[in-house]
Simulated assay, not measured.
Amino acid sequence: MHEQIKEKQDLKANEKWTGVRPSAKQCKKCIHALKDTKFTIGAEKANCDMFISPDDKSPGILSDEVECPYLEE
């Protein structure tokens, strides 16, 4: 029993946690993308003035499968 717990703890300790950043190519060329700051790059985070938060954007827009209705270059 203890060996199983130890084995599970070892597996969990070796897991790699990564996030997948959306490609958001449309955002990178859009005039509505938030301006870069000292700490963030607005377009790379898919933040813009047209949506309240990136969560409001369709995943299709973030993955460039659907054209954003607010895209202006």
Rank of each mutant, 00 (worst) to 15 (best):
K25T: 09
D36F: 00
L34R: 11
Q26C: 07
A46E: 04
F39A: 13
G60A: 06
S53M: 02
P69D: 06
S53P: 04
F39I: 15
L71V: 10
K29M: 08
T37W: 03
S58A: 02
T40L: 15
L34A: 08
G19L: 15
A13I: 06
D64F: 01
L71Q: 06
F51I: 04
N14W: 00
K12T: 07
E73G: 09
K29C: 08
E65G: 02
E67R: 06
N47D: 11
I52C: 07
D10P: 05
E15I: 09
Q9S: 10
W17N: 12
E7S: 14
K8C: 10
S23D: 06
I41M: 10
A33R: 03
L34P: 02
K12M: 08
T40I: 15
T18L: 15
I31D: 11
K16Q: 09
A33K: 07
Y70T: 07
E65Y: 05
Q26R: 03
I41W: 03
M1F: 09
K45C: 10
K8V: 12
M1V: 15
V20Y: 11
K16D: 05
A46R: 02
K28P: 05
T18A: 14
H2F: 15
L34I: 08
S53W: 03
Q4D: 14
V66I: 08
D49G: 07
D10K: 14
V66T: 07
A46W: 02
Y70G: 05
E3T: 13
D56V: 01
E44Y: 05
M50T: 09
E3K: 12
H2T: 11
K38M: 12
A43D: 04
A24Y: 03
K16W: 04
D10W: 08
V66D: 04
L11R: 11
E15F: 09
L71I: 13
P69C: 07
Q26E: 05
S53A: 04
P54L: 01
K16H: 04
S23G: 04
A46M: 06
Y70D: 06
C68K: 02
L34Q: 08
H32N: 06
D55Q: 13
P22C: 02
V20Q: 14
S23E: 09
P59E: 05
Q4N: 15
A24C: 12
V66F: 00
G42E: 01
H2R: 11
I31W: 06
D56E: 07
R21D: 08
K35R: 14
C27K: 00
D10M: 13
K6I: 14
D10R: 15
K25E: 10
P54A: 02
A43P: 05
D36Q: 04
M50K: 14
K29R: 10
P22Q: 04
K16S: 07
R21H: 09
H2D: 10
G19F: 15
I5C: 09
L11W: 06
V66K: 05
E3N: 10
W17A: 09
I52M: 12
D10V: 14
Q4E: 15
H2M: 12
A24T: 03
E15R: 12
K12A: 10
V20K: 12
I31S: 11
P69K: 04
I52Q: 11
L34T: 07
K12L: 10
I31Y: 05
A13C: 06
